[in-house]
Design a protein around this nucleic acid. Structure first.
Length: 124
DNA sequence: GCATTGACGAAGG
DNA sequence: CCCTTCGCCAATG
């Protein structure tokens, strides 16, 4: 990465600084039509016990420069828990449908089939 | 500076 | 099988 890192918390802990950046990077690498979970990303970063931090990172992702396909990140149940953080409540599922991902009742259909594990795909 | 919360997840009752 | 609790770490009040 160059220098365009998380400009959301320049005065916060340096650790989180890197953490946010890593999360953004991984999320951007999610292939179209695929989805992943917060826990998977957390595991890939080595902080599997802190999946909540990934969620926090996504919150900052909303203000991140390169658009973050946060709609491809759902909870371990495949549920679109973060839909309320988008511009509109339907934005998330609309984007997913456009990616070819079926969404039913705020949940990704065939989630396990579309699941993209960074640890498995990117290697660890 | 302590208490609460949060886009999670696993475990226990 | 549904609901509650705990852990993790950072941000916010």
């Amino acid at each position: 990465m160059k220098k365009k890192v998380a400009e959301e918390n320049p005065k916060s802990t340096t650790k989180a600084y890197t953490f946010f950046n890593d999360v953004f990077d991984v999320v951007r690498q999610i292939p179209k039509g695929r989805v992943t979970s917060y826990g998977a990303i957390a595991t890939y970063l080595g902080t599997k016990l802190s999946a909540r931090m990934v969620g926090w990172a996504m919150n900052a992702a909303s203000t991140a420069k390169p658009k973050i396909p946060a709609q491809r990140v759902v909870n371990r149940n495949g549920m679109l828990t973060g839909k309320y953080h988008f511009k509109t409540f339907t934005q998330m599922e609309e984007l997913l449908k456009k990616d070819g991902v079926k969404v039913k009742n705020d949940t990704v259909v065939d989630f396990k089939d579309l699941f993209w594990d960074p640890v498995k795909e990117l290697g660890l």
